[in-house]
C-alpha cells in the first residue's frame, strides 16, 4: 500500500483510493506504448539529433561536422526547395479533399439506406489493402493508354494526360490516389455522427429547422472534435507520403514528385548520407509540428466540446 501511495504521489495522481486505483490502471494500460516509445522511438530520435551534426555513411564511424548538414540544407541544396514545394502542394490539396470527402461520405452512409453496412464495408475496404499492392494497382489505373482513368475520360471525349510521366499531372495523380484511403476517416466520422444526441435533432425539428440547418448548427459543431482529429492525422500522413512515390515514380519526372520522405530515403539508403538524412528528418519533424500547432491553435475557434462553452 505504501509503495502504491508513493507511486501515486510521484505520478501526481489524485487522492482517494478509488481515484488512485483508476489512475494506476490507466498508467498500466498505457505502459506497453509508453515503454515502446521510450525504447524504440525516443532513443533513436535522440541519436538522430546527434547524427544530424555528423557525416555518417552507416558503414564507417560518424564524423562530427557541426552545422554543415543544416547549412547545406538551407543554402546549398536546390532539391530541398523542390521537395518542400511538392510535399506542401500535395498536402494542401489532399488533406481538404480527404477531410471533406470523408465527412460527406459518412453523412451519406449514416442515413437509413438499403445495404448500409455492405456499402460502408466497400468504402472502408481499400484502407485495409497494403500500400505496395495499392500502388501497383494505381499504376494501371493511371496508365495513359490502357488505364481505367483515361478510358473513362475518353468516354466523355477528354483526352487523358500521361498522369505519371507528365510533370504537370503527377501531383494531381497522387492527390486523386489519396482519396482511395478516405474510408479510414469515414469510419471515424461515422462513430462521431452516432454520438450526436438525437434529442438535439428532435428539438430543432420542432423549431422548424430543415435538414441543412440541422447539419450546419448541430451535426458540424457536435462532431467538430472528430473533424479536428481527422484533420491533424491527415496532415501528418500527407506530409509523410512515401510508399506510393517510391514505387510509382521514384520522384520523377524531373523531381516533380520528389517528396520530403522520398528524398530523405534516397540520401539515407542510396547515397550513404545518413547524417544529412537525419537533418532532413528534423526539418520534416519541425515542419509537421509547426503545421499541427497551427491547427491546434486555431481549434479553440472552431472545435466544440460538449460541456464547455464555444470559444473558451
Amino acid at each position: 500500500m505504501a509503495v502504491r501511495a508513493s507511486i501515486a504521489s510521484r505520478l501526481n495522481l489524485p487522492a482517494g483510493r478509488l481515484a488512485r486505483r483508476e489512475a494506476l490502471v490507466g498508467v498500466l494500460l498505457v505502459m506497453p506504448w509508453f515503454v515502446g516509445f521510450l525504447i524504440f522511438l525516443l532513443g533513436p530520435m535522440l541519436v538522430s539529433v546527434y547524427l544530424s551534426f555528423t557525416d555518417w555513411d552507416l558503414l564507417t564511424p560518424a564524423k562530427f561536422v557541426g552545422l554543415k548538414n543544416y547549412r547545406k540544407m538551407i543554402f546549398e541544396d536546390p532539391l530541398i526547395k523542390q521537395a518542400l514545394k511538392v510535399t506542401t502542394i500535395y498536402a494542401f490539396s489532399a488533406v481538404p479533399l480527404r477531410v471533406v470527402g470523408g465527412l460527406l461520405l459518412a453523412v451519406l452512409l449514416n442515413q437509413n439506406i438499403k445495404l448500409k453496412s455492405f456499402i460502408r464495408t466497400v468504402f472502408y475496404l481499400p484502407s485495409v489493402v497494403s500500400g505496395v499492392a495499392v500502388a501497383m494497382l494505381w499504376l494501371w489505373i493511371f496508365n495513359s493508354d490502357f488505364g481505367l482513368l483515361n478510358l473513362i475520360l475518353n468516354l466523355f471525349g477528354i483526352p487523358g494526360p500521361a498522369w505519371l510521366s507528365d510533370t504537370r499531372y503527377v501531383l494531381a495523380a497522387f492527390v486523386i490516389m489519396s482519396l482511395w484511403g478516405v474510408g479510414g476517416s469515414m469510419v471515424i466520422y461515422l462513430a462521431g455522427l452516432q454520438g450526436v444526441p438525437t434529442d438535439l435533432y428532435e428539438a430543432a425539428e420542432v423549431d422548424g429547422a430543415n435538414s441543412l440547418t440541422r447539419f450546419w448548427y448541430i451535426t458540424l459543431p457536435m462532431i467538430s472534435p472528430v473533424i479536428f482529429f481527422n484533420l491533424v492525422m491527415s496532415i501528418i500522413a500527407a506530409l509523410q507520403i512515401f510508399n506510393q512515390a517510391y514505387i510509382m515514380t521514384q520522384g520523377g519526372p524531373q523531381n516533380a514528385s520528389m517528396f520530403m520522405m522520398l528524398y530523405l530515403y534516397f540520401n539515407a539508403f542510396e547515397y550513404f548520407k545518413m547524417g544529412y538524412a537525419s537533418a532532413l528528418a528534423w526539418l520534416i519533424f519541425f515542419y509537421i509540428l509547426a503545421l499541427t500547432l497551427l491547427v491546434f491553435r486555431s481549434s479553440s475557434h472552431w472545435v466544440f466540446y460538449t460541456g464547455s462553452v464555444r470559444g473558451k
Binding site: V25, L28, L29, V30, M31, P32, V35, G36, I39
Partner: peptide, 12 residues
C-alpha cells in the same frame, strides 16, 4: 487488461 498490459510490457 491490467495484467495483459504488464505482460505485454515484460514481453517487450
Amino acid at each position: 487488461l491490467q495484467w495483459a498490459g504488464m505482460g505485454a510490457t515484460v514481453a517487450y
